[in-house]
Simulated scan of single mutants.
Amino acid sequence: MTAALLTGMTTARLDAIDPARLPALLRQMPKAELHIHIEGSLEPELIFKLAQRNGVTLPYPSIEALRAAYAFTDLQSFLDIYYAGASVLLKEEDFFDMAWAYLGKAAADNVVHTEIFFDPQTHTARGVPFETVIKGLNHAVHRAHTGLGVSAKLILCFLRHLSEEEAFATLEKALPWRHHFIGVGLDSSEVGHPPSKFERVFARCRELGLHVVAHAGEEGPPAYIHEALDLLKTERIDHGVRCLEDADLVERLAETRIPLTVCPLSNTKLCVFPTMADHNLPALLDAGLCAMVNSDDPAYFGGYMNQNFIELFAALPQLTARHAYQLARNSFEASFVGEEQKRAWVHQLDAVFNAG
């Protein structure tokens, strides 16, 4: 996004905003969410509802017992419960219900645009047809435009702990539904599964005209970010918080404006940072990086978009209205939409902060 898009808001105006108004601005400002796993929005209450509807027996006796199990020590301990929760998703209406519940929460948090990750391999491995997954999600996405005023798109993610051959097979299953998703991503267990493992399948996706993104630099080293950029040719890095360990990488990310879709509550819940007060998002912004706030797997990590903003700013008092504006603006800049739409959202953002 060019500076010409941003003339409606000055640094002086942002610095003049009363800090007491900041929590309200965080909630009210329009924002885009670019790092949300739809299976990670599946709340315990809906898990039990779908389990009952589909006759699925869960390894937890109650909603409270399931929620109490959300004491993760690392990414893998989370993924174990994440995949167990997804076992209740069997029918098209299940996928619709899950996505619709998330989109309602996004609308309440003034998310005006969201690019939603989905993991088809999690479901096709259980015998659920790809068609069932994509049709249920797509129904919710289309309904959100008119019913909630939320722009939404889908991004198909490959599970990196599986083989590249399985990723190719998933891509082939998805091609008849190509018009229902705008890009591909790479998620699941990062350590031991470098981006280079999927170089050929990402080359094929780029040939098909799909946007490409990848998780890198969450638990994995900065070298994984380099691989995602050099080998997968990714347009965004999901997480990317470990980039600060590599000065050359930081300079590259700043120069190219490669976005980092940072997830504060996720990072603290999975012990990437000991506490929110230790999070490096201020340093990412100070380095001139195109970082933004996202919720990742909000049902498991303690909050959706606004909760991430509120807890982040409460824990890091050096963050000001200027940073809030920058984070929201970055989210629009990084989205896969046209420049005219980005300008319209920035004007909405300016209006909120000028009123603040």
Score class of each variant (00 low, 15 high):
5 L>E: 08
16 A>P: 02
16 A>V: 12
20 A>M: 06
21 R>C: 07
27 R>N: 13
31 K>E: 03
33 E>L: 08
35 H>G: 04
37 H>K: 04
41 S>M: 04
43 E>T: 12
45 E>S: 13
50 L>Y: 03
62 S>D: 06
63 I>M: 09
67 R>D: 12
70 Y>T: 06
71 A>Y: 10
73 T>N: 12
76 Q>P: 03
77 S>H: 12
78 F>V: 07
86 A>L: 04
92 E>T: 05
93 E>G: 00
94 D>S: 02
118 F>P: 05
124 T>D: 00
129 P>C: 09
132 T>G: 01
135 K>N: 15
137 L>G: 09
143 R>T: 10
144 A>T: 08
146 T>P: 01
156 L>T: 11
156 L>R: 11
182 I>A: 11
186 L>S: 04
186 L>E: 06
187 D>V: 12
190 E>R: 05
192 G>E: 05
200 R>I: 01
203 A>L: 01
209 G>E: 00
220 G>R: 02
225 I>G: 04
226 H>S: 10
228 A>I: 05
236 R>W: 07
238 D>Q: 13
240 G>R: 07
241 V>N: 14
246 D>P: 07
247 A>Y: 01
253 L>E: 00
254 A>I: 05
254 A>Y: 00
266 S>C: 13
277 A>V: 05
296 D>P: 03
302 G>I: 06
312 L>W: 05
324 A>P: 01
326 Q>Y: 07
329 R>H: 06
330 N>K: 10
335 S>V: 05
337 V>N: 05
342 K>M: 12
